[in-house]
Amino acid sequence: MHGYIQDKDDYLKRLRRIEGQVRGIARMVEDDTYCIDVLTQIAAVTKALQAVSIGLVEDHLGHCVVDAARESPEAGAAKVREASDAIARLVRS
């Protein structure tokens, strides 16, 4: 079971909302909307995705990493490395 399972419905709602925002941005481009307005909407989508990412990281640390650490120090360390790598990818993007 994944750490986000309790919040799965909330994550899905947020992701569907983001999906709608992205479709809206595509329509804006099709309609030749002013570029600053398009960029503003892209920034909003980016921020929304970052919020989902942060929530998933928190769930992963609080559930998956903690469970692995209880299992064994090696498993815990592996999950911490995995989380660190994922956070590094998020920071680079």
Score class of each variant (00 low, 15 high):
Lys47Tyr: 11
Leu12Gln: 14
Thr46Leu: 10
Glu82Tyr: 11
Val52Ser: 03
Ala26Glu: 15
Lys47Val: 06
Asp10Tyr: 09
Val80Lys: 02
Ala26Thr: 05
Cys35Lys: 00
Ala44Val: 07
His2Trp: 13
Tyr11Met: 08
Val57Phe: 03
Asp59Lys: 09
Glu58Ile: 11
Gln50Tyr: 08
Ala44Asp: 11
Ala51Glu: 15
Gly55Ala: 04
Pro73Asp: 15
Val45Arg: 00
Tyr11Thr: 13
Lys79Gln: 15
Val65Ile: 02
Gly55Arg: 05
Asp37Lys: 04
Ala88Asp: 09
Met1Tyr: 14
Pro73His: 06
Cys64Gly: 07
Arg16Met: 05
Asp59Tyr: 04
Cys35Ile: 15
Asp67Met: 14
Cys64Asp: 10
Ala43Cys: 14
Ile87Phe: 05
Pro73Thr: 10
Tyr4Pro: 04
Gly76Ile: 07
Ile42Tyr: 01
Ile5Thr: 11
Asp7Lys: 08
Gln41Asp: 06
Gln41Pro: 04
Gly24Met: 00
Cys64Lys: 08
Ser53Tyr: 03
Glu58Phe: 04
Ala26Phe: 13
His60Ala: 02
Leu15Thr: 09
Asp32Gln: 09
Ala83Leu: 07
Cys64Glu: 03
Ala83Glu: 04
Leu90Cys: 08
Val38Leu: 04
Val52Phe: 11
Asp32Thr: 02
Asp37Pro: 03
Leu49Arg: 01
Asp7Glu: 15
His2Gly: 09
Thr46Trp: 04
Gly24Cys: 05
Leu12Gly: 05
Gln21Ser: 06
Val57Ser: 02
Ser93Ala: 15
Cys64Gln: 04
Pro73Trp: 04
Ala88Phe: 10
Met1Glu: 12
Val38Glu: 01
Gln41Met: 14
Leu12Asp: 15
Arg70Met: 15
Ala77Ile: 01
Ala78Arg: 14
Gln50Cys: 03
Val29Gly: 07
Ala68Val: 07
Leu61Gly: 00
Arg89Ser: 14
Ala51Asp: 14
Glu58Leu: 10
Ala78Leu: 08
Val66Cys: 04
Thr40Arg: 07
Gly24Arg: 03
Ile18Lys: 01
Pro73Met: 11
Ile87Leu: 10
Ala83Gly: 09
Val22Pro: 01
Ser93Gly: 14
Cys35Arg: 02
Ala69Glu: 10
Arg70His: 15
Gln6Tyr: 03
His63Pro: 03
Tyr4Cys: 05
Asp85Tyr: 06
Arg23Gly: 02
Glu58Asp: 14
Ala43Asp: 11
Ala51Gly: 11
Thr46Lys: 12
Ala86Pro: 03
Met1Gln: 11
Gly20Ala: 06
Ala83Trp: 05
Gly24Ile: 07
Ala77Arg: 10
Val66Ile: 13
Ala86Met: 07
Ala77Asp: 12
Asp67Glu: 13
Ala78Trp: 03
Asp9Glu: 14
His63Ala: 13
Asp32Phe: 06
Val57Ile: 04
Asp31Met: 10
Glu74Ser: 06
Lys8Trp: 10
Glu58Gln: 13
Asp67Pro: 03
Cys35Gly: 02
His63Met: 04
Glu82Pro: 01
Glu74Leu: 10
Gln21Lys: 05
Glu82Val: 12
Lys79Cys: 06
Asp85Ala: 13
Gln6Ile: 09
Ser72Gly: 07
Ala75Asn: 10
Ser53Pro: 02
Val29Lys: 01
Arg17Ala: 06
Ile54Tyr: 10
Leu39Val: 08
Ile87Pro: 01
Met28Ser: 05
